[in-house]
Design a protein around this nucleic acid. Sequence first.
DNA 1: CCTACCGATCGGTAGG
DNA 2: CCTACCGATCGGTAGG
Lengths: 191, 191
Amino acid sequence: MRRSAVDAQHTRDTIIAKAAAIASVDGLEGVTIGRLAADLAMSKSGVLGHFGTKEGLQLAAIDRVIADFRAKVVEPALTRDRGLPRLTALCDHWFDYLADTGLPGGCLLTAAAVEFDTRTGEVHDTVAELWNDWRRLLRAELKHTGLDVDQCLFELMALGPAVNQAIQLHGDRKAPERAKRAARTVLLVKA
Amino acid sequence: MRRSAVDAQHTRDTIIAKAAAIASVDGLEGVTIGRLAADLAMSKSGVLGHFGTKEGLQLAAIDRVIADFRAKVVEPALTRDRGLPRLTALCDHWFDYLADTGLPGGCLLTAAAVEFDTRTGEVHDTVAELWNDWRRLLRAELKHTGLDVDQCLFELMALGPAVNQAIQLHGDRKAPERAKRAARTVLLVKA
DNA sequence: CCTACCGATCGGTAGG
DNA sequence: CCTACCGATCGGTAGG
């Protein structure tokens, strides 16, 4: 009875997954309706009908990846005690995520931060909000440590993009381990 | 007599400057011949004639910015003694450059590293080579310090992208100072 | 450096 | 979800 609605949802999921994969390699602007339709053996209007506009599709792809990031990085760390234990867990999960995002081009959220940092629009706003949320999360935990909050925040925030670049551009597979060690130095925690 | 050749060189310089400015905001793929022609009140073929292809134009823009980076960041530091003095100079100039690149969208080289990290072609190769050169430069100096070369290299490399993101995405104008302080911590140098 | 043009592709819409 | 189509723009070329 509701088979067609289920099918539509499945099609939508498939489109989003493919869009995120393309965006991780070629950027969110590199996601085109025509290419997506061809890759999925659909018509362009069949693709676009699920999202209305290209921007709607970009936002859907970002939202999907943000949900995945929250599930893999943020949620598991919230079981840890506030302050240093939670901070080290957040960082460790972050660096592990960057090494294994499930997308062919690495971390879409890290790439989107650079791609949209000086643009305007909803995509920029969503990306900026995501990273502001992440900063606020780390900042709130840093306040429990007695450390220099702003300086430590800057130094921890640096490690994610560094892991991404070390892996994607330099092929350094040890990057997550180096970042974990660096985070412990910042937080004055013994490895 | 040679006025036309001088004019042509001037036109070429103007095109490259505009292309770099656009690329800093919208990415190197966002540089289109038609937009450049409209902005400069030229014909498309007038623009393209100087570079042959869009890729040629992208490479010319990158080469220009690389030369500027070398002149502002690398060259001034080479007068300092090898090891820690040169490393701190390289880092300081790097962070100051990131805060004032002369381009409206921030650092094109940092953005291009992310935009092209998982693509193929000459643009990718040029960008990868630039960052490999920078890594080799820092690594060579780190070998004079007695510090853990690979770990320190990772931690220093992290600070550039961090400054860029802090400024462009979060509007944190104190980022260069924070990065200078972080670099001194990494290098065990007193501030 | 220009005009004039090429085929391909862009995001999106009409109508079913 | 489809076909068929829109105007705009893409990178690039011919010929001058």
